[in-house]
Each structure stands twice: as structure tokens, then as C-alpha cells.
């Protein structure tokens, strides 16, 4: 009996050591049982497939900003957003997928078996609870028009990071016919022309010196 207690204690210690490893899956479509996301649009308001999308996690609950520094929109990455090169509390987690037809050509309907999905939908993403992202934090779905560096943002009371290991569907905001939502809420800076110009001048100088 004593031996067992010792074993249990040591195993519990091992268990707590691993508790930092965590991930969650959030989906935004519940075919035939809930809502289907659709009608996410570019800055011009044109519903678009092929847009990069993701979530911005508001790690301290102070909402998101309307402007951030430039970001490399690399799918599958988790990035701290900055303003004036100062880190904010917001993290951008980009999905590996792009906006697409949530109805898959009419194969999927919402839970009412009537409302179709449509273009400009988002399927879901899987990400680690790391780098300050934790269960219980609020997030916004964002979709990005890279031509304007603008993103649309959709918040909802349901958009809360789930607990470690969970697979959840946050489809309820997409029940019924979705309004067209343009990528107009957030402006990401474009790389500064001045820095690009300096680089160009430096290159020209190098070439001239070689001559």
C-alpha cells in the first residue's frame, strides 16, 4: 500500500509536468445540425473564396485594435500583433485553410436542412494553447484581403477559446443566411516605402561602386 502511494505520487508529478502541452480545434460549420459560415468578403464587399483567415485572440479582454503593424500572413502561424513595433496583447492565429464554399457545391446544408452554405466560408482551425493563448479568452474571426491589407473581424459571445484538448463547433453565429461581411475592420500596415527605398538606394550604391 505504501509502495502504491509512492508510485501514484510520482506519476502525478509526471502528469503535471506535461500539462503545458495543449491544443484545441474550433470549427465554424455544423452541417445538418447547426450553422454554416459563408459570405465573408474582400474589402470591396465581394464574397470571396481563397482568402487567408484566422482568429485574433484578445488575451487580456480589451478588444482588438483597428490598426496593427505589417504582418506576414503565413498560414498556420501564431503571431503577436504589434503597433509601432510594440507588442500588443492580441495574437493572430492563421488557419492552414482558405475561405471556401462551406456548402461544398450544395452537399451541405444547415441544421434546418434548408439553408445552404456558400462561398466565403471558414472551416476551422487547430492550434496550440501557447504563447499567452489560453482557455477562456475571447477571440474574433478575421479574414484578410491581402491586396488592401485589411481584415474583417467578427466577434460573438460564443467565440471563447475552449479548454485544453477540446474539439468544439462555434457555428451558432452563422445560423441562417449570413450577411455579407467585408474585410474592412482592421488595417494592417504595408511595409514602409521609406525602408524599401533605403534598401533600393543601398543596392544602387553597391552596384555603382563595383563599376
Amino acid at each position: 500500500m505504501k509502495l502504491n502511494k509512492l508510485i501514484v505520487a510520482s506519476l502525478m508529478a509526471l502528469g503535471s509536468f506535461t500539462a503545458a502541452n495543449a491544443a484545441v480545434t474550433i470549427t465554424f460549420n455544423a452541417a445538418f445540425s447547426g450553422g454554416l459560415s459563408s459570405n465573408l468578403a474582400n474589402t470591396a464587399g465581394v464574397v470571396s473564396n481563397g482568402l487567408k483567415w484566422g482568429i485574433i485572440v484578445d488575451t487580456t479582454g480589451n478588444s482588438f485594435l483597428s490598426q496593427y503593424d505589417a504582418v506576414a500572413f503565413t498560414q498556420g502561424t501564431n503571431t503577436t500583433l504589434t503597433v509601432g513595433n510594440v507588442a500588443t496583447d492580441d495574437r493572430l492565429i492563421l488557419a492552414t485553410s482558405l475561405t471556401s464554399d462551406s456548402g461544398q457545391g450544395g452537399q451541405a446544408l444547415e441544421g434546418d436542412f434548408t439553408t445552404p452554405g456558400g462561398n466565403g466560408g471558414v472551416d476551422g482551425l487547430i492550434f496550440a494553447l501557447a504563447n499567452g493563448v489560453a482557455a477562456g479568452q475571447k477571440y474574433f474571426v478575421v479574414w484578410i484581403d491581402e491586396s488592401t491589407k485589411k481584415a474583417g473581424a467578427l466577434g460573438n459571445a460564443a467565440f471563447v477559446i475552449p479548454a485544453d484538448g477540446q474539439t468544439v463547433s462555434h457555428d451558432s453565429p452563422f445560423l441562417g443566411v449570413d450577411p455579407v461581411r467585408g474585410a474592412t475592420n482592421i488595417q494592417f500596415a504595408v511595409p514602409e516605402p521609406s525602408s524599401m527605398l533605403l534598401g533600393l538606394l543601398g543596392a544602387l550604391g553597391f552596384i555603382r561602386r563595383r563599376r
Partner: peptide, 28 residues
């Protein structure tokens, strides 16, 4: 999926005529 408490990586949904992949891919 690395670590513990690993969530689902693919989701399939029963549609009226077939199973449909609805996360991590698409189609029949």
C-alpha cells in the same frame, strides 16, 4: 498532434447521401 490532449484533426459529417469531410479537407 504533438503532446497530450490532442484535439481532432479531421471531422466527417453524415450527409443525406454520403459522409462529407467538413474539417481538415472536404468532399465525399
Amino acid at each position: 498532434g504533438v503532446g497530450i490532449n490532442v484535439p481532432a484533426s479531421q471531422i466527417y459529417t453524415m450527409a443525406p447521401a454520403n459522409w462529407l469531410q467538413t474539417f481538415g479537407g472536404s468532399g465525399n
